[in-house]
Design a protein around this nucleic acid. Structure first.
Lengths: 213, 213
DNA sequence: CTGCACATCAGGGGTGACCCTGAGCCAACC
DNA sequence: GGTTGGCTCAGGGTCACCCCTGATGTGCAG
């Protein structure tokens, strides 16, 4: 208990805030509270806490709105979402907005203290029921560097390549670029030859891996 | 200290294992140790610990190999990667393999205990330097619900559908399933009709959006 | 027993994808 | 002025894709 992170509580129910205060005990310093979006942004900006414990659903908006408001005021604060909901949509919204973690209100008091301290230190914390979800999403995201092979293609070939990768038929590509089908075929052949691919299907996955489409 | 999770340590350096043991103190029960991949898989399978503290780089392979080995033996154990590296590639590989968290060896002892306990409870835990990275990847990932339309397809049709979505030619699908091309055509037609799609390209993007491939 | 769904295969036909050769036009460069 | 490279188009060919009809055998539920 040498270190007490400062915390602001955002929740529209006084009883919930009181409960959280009680659970947190003297392990953290509660330096502010708020019950709606506008009030919350003000309190957070004024007090600059180490962590904001943030309810996802507020009467005047969402937790994501609060984060957006604080960011818009030019401040960088760590948010830990605290909600009864474990719906993916809620999680996504508030994490996208910038929250560093998400725990449900079913969390035991001691773990909530841990979670707050970890977020204060920069960790990402997720409730067990969400951990698998987060990991799945993480696994699905793929990092990909630059693409020097794209320079092999002439500008027109790159246009055709993008449309090919999206699955457009030659006829449709010809219509969009107002050229003849035969010209599209020529470009398509060049693209496949230069990229050393053998079909538009390979091109599709090639482009998908490179996030070109 | 009422609850002591059982832990197996995997690291090729005896000194590191000794250091981790000392840091963990009596907060956990260390029920096994290993220094290479084969040994590690055996120890984990035998001892069935709550958490495996897993070095990412081993002389005979990687941490991901250990996880793959344990999974291949039909066991489900929670892994927490513990490494000097914070390189994205290392993180991705071991998380993809199934680790529930990743912390660097710079972590203080008390936090390592916390991390182990959280992972034992099902949480996902990440070091501060990786938290931002994880959240970025999470934000980039797209949420997608269930797929009731898949029940429209018979088992065989679903097999064909998956191969079609990956871009395999009819001939290749026939070879893999050891059936005739004509049968593949029949299934493919049924799939497209039932899913109300008109080409394998639409099927590809349909399947990609649903994370089926 | 009788449908019914499923899986398997065949023939035939229309369209798309891909390749090759060949060709004209234009701008840039040596 | 000749050469080079990009963009445009054409003819002709092979193979893949997709649809239709029709057929056989199996297993399962009414």
């Amino acid at each position: 208990m040498v270190y007490q992170p400062s915390v602001v509580l955002i929740d529209d129910h006084d009883l919930v805030r009181a409960g959280v205060r009680a659970e947190l005990g003297d392990h953290v310093r509660v330096v502010g509270e708020a019950g709606d979006v506008v009030e919350a942004v003000d309190v957070v900006v004024e007090t600059q806490p180490d962590v904001v414990l943030l309810d996802v659903h507020l009467p005047s908006g969402t937790g994501a709105d609060v984060i957006a408001g604080v960011v818009a005021r030019g401040h960088d604060v760590r948010f830990l979402a605290l909600s009864v909901s474990d719906a993916p949509d809620d999680v996504i919204a508030v994490i996208r907005a910038g929250a560093r973690g998400y725990v449900t209100k079913a969390i035991p008091g001691a773990e909530l203290v841990d979670a707050v301290r970890r977020v204060a230190e920069g960790d990402a914390v997720f409730s067990p029921r969400l951990a698998g979800f987060v990991i799945d999403a993480f696994s699905a995201a793929i990092p990909e560097p630059a693409d020097p092979e794209l320079d092999l293609l002439s500008p027109r070939e790159q246009e055709v390549m993008r449309l090919l990768a999206r699955g457009y038929a030659y006829k449709e590509i010809a219509r969009r670029l107002t050229i003849s089908i035969k010209t599209v075929e020529t470009h398509a052949s060049s693209v496949l030859r230069k990229l050393q691919l053998s079909s538009r299907h390979e091109l599709s996955s090639w482009a998908a891996r490179r996030r070109i489409v």
